[in-house]
Amino acid sequence: MTEIWHGLVKAVELIISFDPEVMQIAGRSLMIAVSSAVIGSVICIPIASFIHFNRFRGKRFLVSLIQTFYSVPTVAVGLFVFVFISSAGPLGGLGIVFTPPAIVVGQVILITPILLGLTISALSGVDRAILDTARSLGAGGRQMAVLVVKEARFAVVAAVIMGFGRAISELGISLMVGGNIRGFTRVITTAISLETSKGDIELAMALGIILIFIALVVNILMNRIQQR
């Protein structure tokens, strides 16, 4: 028990003294997860709008398939990305294995189902009367899509934040395709995992607290947005 208390005190010390290593790891984690969320959104919001605004065969099936992948295991994505980008893999020539971009690629794949699925449901939440009004005022297909995304903007942002949350808290991908290289690809989750197994509880705890703090901020943001 004293060990835990001691660890906690040390952890808080590390945070309030802006320990360079802790700050660097936390900063990198944020950087990578934000990149993943932004790139994922740029790809997924238009695709989600396309799926929502077009009628085609198998649309329902596609949407349930997307929802099924909400909880895809991170290690499965890690493995999948790894076999493609490892030096022997088909995209090995890119040479991105064990680099931050590799983690971003993996995280984008990981959060794509969440971004697509939640954006689609955000768009379906827009009142039919809004669509009728827009059409009656002479909106064309694309003008309509832009309007609906704008109308659903809070729910869409909530989807992006969810995606970010999943990206920053995952371990499998960062470990498998990032390699947990100190000062290069080490992020909060991989550092916690490593330091804990090494017995350096204080550093692990400090990073854990930061991760929980980030989760808290994200949650507050989500609530704020959803209350609008």
């Binding site: 009367a129 809004i130 009656s136 005022l137 309007l147 704008k150």
Partner: peptide
């Protein structure tokens, strides 16, 4: 043609933008 629906809805934006949208779309 313009159509004022029975239960009119406004877009979640300013009054100005609501009135402007039809013109911008044209």
């Amino acid at each position: 043609i313009s159509f004022v629906l029975q239960k009119p809805v406004v877009f979640n934006t300013s009054v100005y933008d609501n009135v402007a949208c039809g013109l911008r779309w044209r």
